[in-house]
């Protein structure tokens, strides 16, 4: 076990020689693309599954199965399809995050109080308009939970992917630490990964959740 001092030293050195900033930027760039794609696929898929019984019985069951599959299992296939490239890792991230977002969106939409839908209908909203003006906003708290869940799944998938294969990124530094037996570097990197996760949860998701709770009156005054 490395001493706190050596871990601190590894941190200072890593930020000093810019290896951490470069790695963080590389990892976050992959996250943005992968997570963005997961949102772009996950939300419409959740909507479709909630709306159509046919899609629920076919793709819906597949989604439930896929969600339990650790996304890193896709890496061999991704390497075959995309070669040793950025695309392979992003694919793993997408597979890791999409289905938890889909499941949350689907659940949120199915749990929209029928009263609100009826109110929307009697006020003249139908079809797409009803979905956009009533169903989606009503499902927003559940969708936000799904996005938060999706983010942590994406982050885990990314680290696993980078650990196994990548040129840059935080996972890569972990591999280097292992290869050189530099446990201080490994621990320092784990700290960086942890703190990044905390920052996103603290400054992105928590404020969004609080704002929503306040608006909906779900928060104790």
């Amino acid at each position: 076990m490395p001493s706190p001092r050596s871990v601190g030293h590894a941190l200072v050195e890593g930020f000093g020689d810019r290896s951490y900033p470069v790695a963080i930027l590389a990892s976050l760039a992959r996250m943005l693309i992968g997570y963005g794609l997961a949102i772009a696929i996950g939300i419409p898929l959740g909507l479709a599954i909630a709306r159509s019984i046919l899609i629920r019985d076919t793709i819906g069951s597949a989604v439930v199965g896929l969600q339990t599959l650790p996304s890193i299992c896709w890496l061999p296939l991704a390497l075959l399809w995309f070669g040793l490239s950025e695309k392979a890792i992003i694919f793993v991230v997408v597979m890791g995050a999409t289905f938890s977002i889909t499941t949350a969106v689907e659940g949120g939409i199915r749990n929209v109080p029928p009263l609100l839908l009826k109110a929307g209908q009697t006020l003249g909203a139908q079809g797409l308009l009803l979905s956009l003006r009533v169903t989606l906003p009503a499902a927003l708290p559940a969708i936000l939970t799904g996005l938060k869940l999706g983010w942590s799944f994406a982050w885990r998938s990314l680290m696993a992917g980078e650990l196994l294969y990548s040129e840059r990124g935080l996972g890569r530094i972990l591999t280097i630490g292992r290869d050189y037996g530099d446990m201080a570097l490994v621990l320092a990197t784990i700290l960086v990964i942890l703190v990044l996760g905390l920052i996103v949860s603290r400054y992105v998701f928590e404020p969004a959740e609080r704002a929503l709770a306040r608006r909906w009156g779900l928060e104790a005054e």
């Binding site: 109080p113 009263l115 009826k118 109110a119 929307g120 009533v134 009503a138 927003l140 608006r215 909906w216």
Partner: peptide, 9 residues
């Protein structure tokens, strides 16, 4: 309706 059914957002 019996419940007002106002949109909370």
């Amino acid at each position: 309706f019996q419940e007002a059914g106002l949109f909370p957002w």
